[in-house]
Structures are given as C-alpha cells and as structure tokens.
Design a protein around this nucleic acid. Structure first.
Lengths: 145, 145
DNA sequence: TTAATAAAAGACCAAAAAGTCTTTTACTTT
DNA sequence: AAAGTAAAAGACTTTTTGGTCTTTTATTAA
C-alpha cells in the first residue's frame, strides 16, 4: 500500500502524460495513454471518465477525439487530482486513524505526523501540473514501470 | 486510505497501549486492549498473534496471561512495528507506484517524495516505542477514537 | 487432576479496491 | 445519410483488506 491508492497513481501518471502530449494542442486516446503509463486500459478509462466529469481533464468523442487539457487545467495544482480521486483525508487525517485526534486531543504521533503531512500538502498544492510535465519534455523523468 | 493500513493503525495503537500498561510488569488481555484502543476484538487478536510471532510483543496463555513487552521490545523503534505489518515499501516505494523508479530513472515526483518519505522514516526509526508511551503516562495523548 | 482462563489457530464472511468486458452515445468525415 | 471512430456508461469478476466466529492448546491455581 502506497501513500496514494492505485487509482490515484494511475490518475496522476495519466494527467502528467496528457499534460505532456497536450501542450501542443493535440488530443490523445486512452490506448496510447494506457500503454504510455503502463496501466490497464479499461480501468484507466473509468478513471479518466471521472477526472473528465470533475473538470481535471477534458475529452472529446469521435474521430480525432481523445483526452486533452486546457490552459486552466494545466495550471491546476497536483493536489486537485489527488483530492478528486482519494479525497482530502490524506492532507488532514490522523496517522493512527483516530477520528477525534486534534491539536487539543492529540494521538502520540500527532505533531510529528502533522509536520510531514503538511510538507506533502505543500508539495502538491504549490506545484502545478504543467511544472511537472516540463521535466518530461526534457526526458529527465518517466511514467512507465 | 491513510498512510498506514487499518491493520497497521491497530497494531501501533495496541503496541502503545501494551507498552503503557506493561511498564509496571503487568500483562493485559485482548479484551482490555481492544476496548482501550477502540478496535474489533477478534481482528486485533489476529494482529497481536502476528506481532507476537515476530517478537514485537510477548504473550502468555492461561490465567494471569495476556500481552506484555519486555525491555528489548520497549526499546525497539516504531519502524519495526510498521515494517512487521505493512512491509518496508512505505519507506522506499515510489509515490506513483513505478517499480523501476530510482535516482537515475526518476518519476516526476521522485526527489520531492523522497525527502518526505525519509522524514517519515527518520521519525519512525529514531523514536522508540517507550518514548511515545511516556506521553500516554502523562495523559497528554490518547489512543481512542 | 480438573476447572477455569486466556491466547493461538483456523474457517469463514463482508466490503472495498482493482480490473475486465460489452454496449451505448456522440461526433466527424466521406 | 452512413460508416467509422472514440469516449461514456454500466454490468460484471477478481483480489485484497477488514472483520467475525468457533475450536484448540497451553497454563495456572484450587
């Protein structure tokens, strides 16, 4: 089990992939995305349908259709993708799963955990999707297994 | 989904609970642990059997039996509990689930993620179980929902 | 030495996450 | 208008995680 669910991992990877391919105004089909990020095609289709409904990515049916991202989507922080898929509990939840854990009623890990969680939050909130895809353009980072 | 699995959350909470009660040399039964940390009794029993097999906690059957922790167990780092239950992938795995992600072949989040993961690792490795249970003694932190 | 106690073991069930497959809808080009 | 294309939708299956229940084994104290 990772920090993100498998669904969310695929979502992030596909968003990076689409952002990368879409910069030039193109659209890209699921088959290509799925093979580009090493994910099950039909499973990814469902994830992208969801992301599309939520406005994280855009899509068009029919010939020359596919997925793409408009300018607003490219400028969104990665946190929006994560929150759309896994919810915001990752940014706020107690490390030990305690519902009433808080500043005034902390679990033994509360303060230490909060610091780490906030760093993850900052990372995801302060970096835009387009920022990450820059390194993909340079061929420095990759999205396949 | 949190950082740890539900099983791991219960494991950590129960270990803290046992550590807290065991300081005075006592043993504590599952019923008491389960109600003390708000967990399903039989599910916790299985978790503790496993932790006992792995030497994270000690146990004794029969009257006056129960779970306890010897000195060596109390001085173990929390990381040992987490690793026993969730494995070490949490300390080393790629944030995007990529098997071949590494320093020389990094995913777009690799470096930023590594920094955060290492902090979690340090926290869990550098603090002993007994250190956490001190605050429980003082009544500052708690283990219930 | 037997009755009570408490963990160990294992069979079983439920829910959620992950993944597959088929059909439908929308769009575009000829 | 028709044929082809590609996403949307939805039914379905599998696997993993989380959880329950019953039986067995070991221990101890009367």
């Amino acid at each position: 089990m990772g920090v993100f669910s498998k669904t969310c991992e695929y979502a992030i990877r596909s968003v990076f992939f689409i952002a990368h391919r879409t910069a030039s105004g193109n659209r890209v089909g699921i088959k290509e995305i799925a093979s580009g990020i090493d994910s099950p095609e039909h499973f990814l289709a469902k994830i992208l349908q969801d992301l599309s409904r939520k406005g994280i990515v855009q899509s068009a049916k029919g010939p020359n259709g596919g997925f793409y991202m408009d300018d607003a989507a490219l400028k969104r922080p990665l946190a929006d993708v994560v929150e759309a898929v896994d919810g915001k509990s990752i940014f706020t939840g107690c490390g030990l799963g305690l519902a009433y854990c808080s500043e005034t009623n902390p679990c033994p890990l509360h303060h230490e955990f909060k610091a780490i969680r906030n760093q993850l939050k900052d990372l995801l909130e302060q970096t835009r999707i387009i920022d990450f895809s820059e390194n993909l353009n340079l061929g420095i980072t990759k999205l396949k297994k």
